[in-house]
């Protein structure tokens, strides 16, 4: 008979779950703060190179996490340009990597959402005298609940990826071990049932987050139309 996995008995699992949420939600918050205005600017603005920028952004949605991890590792390494900050193998490094990973997703998806909305709002807002940044912010705020979908896509990617956080976090027990790296570790130890169990925990958490966001969105849409 297999012994009951000790990871489930002590506080370590909770610590890992908590860190996963902290890292991924921080990355989502940062990427949202940067990605929504970027997406809105691309949707509303008309400037040279806009089309190329949109294509690049769409392509970056498929950025391999390992590449991002490697890039951030090289930058944060003591031998790299940002080495002096000593961020490598800290949760901060993981937040940076995931932010870079999901920024294109949030920016590209919100660009699409804002552009669709813009077709509806453009004339009315200009008629009222709202131009440029003010008009863009008005649209962003008005479709905020639809933008939740873009943000959730970012969260999904952040919480599911293992390549970037493994490289820049180092999967250090009690410091940078998150759900996905713990799953990878248990898999490599050949403890497939435990790895699968951790995977189920992760999926449950992501499911609960999505359900909560969905309920908020539905309630808001019933309320505001």
């Amino acid at each position: 008979m297999q012994e009951f996995p000790e990871i489930l008995l002590d506080g370590r699992l909770w610590q890992i779950v908590l860190l996963s949420l902290q890292v991924s939600l921080s990355a989502v918050a940062l990427a949202t703060c940067a990605g929504l205005p970027l997406g809105a600017a691309l949707a509303v603005g008309r400037f040279r190179g806009r089309d190329s920028l949109i294509v690049v952004l769409n392509a970056l949605m498929g950025l391999p996490p390992v590449v991002v991890g490697l890039f951030v590792y090289m930058a944060l390494s003591r031998a790299g340009p940002l080495g002096a900050f000593g961020l490598l193998f800290t949760p901060g490094a993981m937040v940076i990597a995931q932010t870079i990973l999901i920024l294109p997703i949030i920016a590209a998806l919100s660009r699409q959402a804002v552009e669709d909305a813009w077709r509806e709002y453009d004339e009315q807002l200009r008629s009222l005298g709202a131009h440029g940044l003010r008009a863009a912010l008005t649209v962003l705020w008005d479709i905020r609940f639809s933008l939740l979908t873009s943000v959730l896509a970012g969260l999904g990617r952040a919480s599911a990826e293992v390549g970037a956080v493994m490289i820049v976090g180092g999967n250090i027990e009690g410091v940078t071990r998150v759900m996905t790296t713990a799953i990878a570790l248990e898999t490599s130890k050949g403890d497939l049932p435990l790895a699968l169990g951790l995977g189920l925990v992760l999926m449950t958490i992501v499911l609960v987050l999505n359900a909560a966001a969905y309920l908020v969105k539905e309630a808001a849409q019933r309320r505001y139309g």
């Binding site: 009315q124 008629s127 008005d142 479709i143």
Partner: peptide
């Protein structure tokens, strides 16, 4: 000068 459209666009508030 102001304009009223055939289909007005209202903000979600």
């Amino acid at each position: 000068h102001a304009m009223v459209f055939q289909r007005p666009v209202m903000l979600r508030c």
